[in-house]
Every structure is written in C-alpha cells, then in structure tokens.
C-alpha cells in the first residue's frame, strides 16, 4: 500500500502531481467527455456537426419503438446461447492439456493454443468470409467433397427449410437470409479461445495429484472425472468467461460489420444493436439518435459488468 503523507510532505512533493496530469487529461477528454456528450446529445436531433435541435425525449421514445433495434437483441440472444456451446472446445482443450503428464508438452500446447493470435483477428475474419464464398469458398467445397451437401439437401426437403440448400447450386452462406445466423455461429470453428483455455488451465492448476489418484483407485471414467473433479473446480472461471462472453457479444459488432456490411446482411438478419447504432450514426447521419441507442446498450452492459464485479470477481 502507498503510504499516507503529511501535509508538509505533500507540499514538498507537489511536483508529483505532474505525473498524473497527462493520464488524467487524456482520460477526461477521451473517456469522460464522450460519455457525457453522448448523454447530452441523446436529447437532440444532431448530425454530428455544430447544428443541433433539442427534441426532448423523442430519440428515446423512437428507440423504444424501433423494431430493428429490439429485433437485434433477439439475434444477440441466439448468439449468446450459441457462444455458450462454443466454450466447450476451450474447456475440453484445457482439461486435455491439464491431464497430460509431461510438463514440457503442457507448455508447448499452451504456446500452440496461443499461436492463432499471431493472425490479426481481422484477417481471420476475412479468411472465414472467404471460406463462406459461394463459388470459391472452402466450406462449400468441403461439403461437396464429403457428401455432406446431399445430406443438407435431404434435410432441407424433409424439414421444409424452403430450398436453402439446392442440388447443383452453390450455397450462398452470407447471401441467404436463413443462413446468416448459422454462418455467424459456424465461423471460427472449432472455436478455441486462447484466453479461455489459459484461464481454465489456471483454474485446473489447483487440483492436486492425490485427487486423481483417489479417483483412479475408485475406477472413475475420464468423463466422470471431468464432471465431478474438474468442472466443479473451474466453475468460477466458467462463470467469469460466461459473463465476459455476454458482455462481449452484447457490445461487439465488428464481426457482423465485416462479414455482412452495415445493414446486417440479407434481410438484416445479422443486425446486432451495436451495429444499428453504428449504422445510424455513420451511415444515416443520425448522431443524436445513435447516442440514445448507445445509452440503452450502455445500461445493459453496465448491469452485466456490475453482476460480474459483485458476484464473480470477488470469489477469485
């Protein structure tokens, strides 16, 4: 802890304040000011320039009735559920690495898990966009090669998906409204999150050898071991990752913007709240309205962050 100082000492050390002034100024101008400005401008019709017109709560009442905005939350709900399942590979990977006996392999697998981070996330997204390409994409050529395509065509006919998958016609993953959300879920397969794996591994570290030995004596199967020994011990980490994932999914829109464009793809099926805010501000020039939309998102994320801080981080 830093030492409390007497008045004299503080007067003598007054120059120390110069150390904090630059950070303070930056934070005040580029973090506090934009937030306050967003609150202020949400009451205006504003195009981002000097002209603005006070319209009271009109932006908020419009936001409450905005079908696109609230529809986008449905997309978020679907993505959150999907992302829950997408955590499984990371947990499995962490458990697999942890169960290895060789410390050296454990280290090198950690490095390999982190390796994909050397490709900028933007590039990974663009490569997936290319995988989804109807004519040249790897996904379609994989489905043709393995015969999975005919399976999908049969399923389409059987369940009445309405001709999403057709024989002889390349599937337009990002061009077909019904496939937009599946594409948003599939991308990044097998969904290994480097940060997730490392955090789960940190949680597993607390399991001692004797626990495993006792389990071995009882003839416990590997899956039971996971269920009764490993999973309960990483519950804290899992909860942390779930909340972080929810916050990330709720505020992220770069993925949707890059894969689908500012309108959320065909039929706007991939529209998420953040993208709608971005769209209103920078493509429609409705900055005041975008501020109001941003404040709704702000409130939701704030609640999630508080839950995270109150119930999850404390236990760590």
């Amino acid at each position: 802890m830093s030492l409390p100082v007497s008045k004299q000492k503080a007067l003598y050390e007054w120059k120390l304040y110069f150390f904090i002034i630059p950070s303070l100024l930056l934070v005040a101008v580029f973090a506090y000011w934009p937030t306050l400005s967003a609150i202020y401008h949400s009451f205006f019709r504003w195009g981002g320039g000097d002209n603005k017109e006070f319209i009271g709560l009109a932006n908020f009442s419009r936001a409450l009735q905005d079908g696109v905005f609230w529809g986008a939350f449905l997309t978020i709900a679907i993505l959150v559920v999907a992302n829950l399942f997408k955590m499984i590979p990371s947990i499995a990977m962490a458990v697999l690495i942890h169960r290895l006996r060789s410390e050296r392999w454990q280290y090198w697998y950690r490095v390999l898990v982190v390796l994909p981070m050397i490709v900028p996330s933007l590039v990974t997204l663009f490569i997936w966009k290319f995988f989804f390409n109807p004519n040249m994409g790897a996904l379609n050529s994989f489905l043709d090669l393995t015969g999975l395509k005919s399976l999908l065509i049969a399923a389409d006919k059987a369940f009445g998906w309405g001709g999403v998958f057709l024989d002889g016609i390349p599937t337009a993953w990002l061009g077909e409204p019904a496939l937009v959300i599946p594409a948003l879920i599939i991308w990044g397969f097998p969904w290994l999150g480097a940060v997730g794996v490392l955090i789960f591994l940190a949680g597993l570290q607390s399991i001692g050898t004797e626990v495993y030995e006792a389990a071995d004596l009882d003839g416990v199967t590997p899956f039971q071991k996971f269920l009764h020994i490993e999973f309960p011990l990483i519950m804290t980490q899992v909860r942390l990752m779930v909340v972080l994932m929810m916050i990330g999914t709720l505020q992220g829109y770069g993925l949707q913007f890059l894969l689908l464009g500012e309108d959320g793809g065909p039929g706007g099926r991939g529209m998420v709240p953040g993208l709608w805010m971005f769209n209103r501000a920078f493509f429609a020039g409705e900055f005041g309205y975008a501020c109001a939309l941003g404040l709704f998102l702000f409130a939701f994320i704030l609640v999630l962050t508080m839950i995270n801080n109150k119930f999850i981080r404390v236990e760590k």
Partner: peptide, 26 residues
Amino acid sequence: SQILWGLFLLLMLLPGIANIVTLFAL
C-alpha cells in the same frame, strides 16, 4: 489521490459503447 483513483476505477466499470459516436464529433 483517493478521489483521482476513484475516477480511474469508475472507467473500468463504464462501458465505452456509445463513445464511438461522440468521439468522432470530438
């Protein structure tokens, strides 16, 4: 310094989601 520290910590809590709109204007 306690007050200043609070100002910094508060930002860990406040989401910056709406900032992109007003940062542009700033």
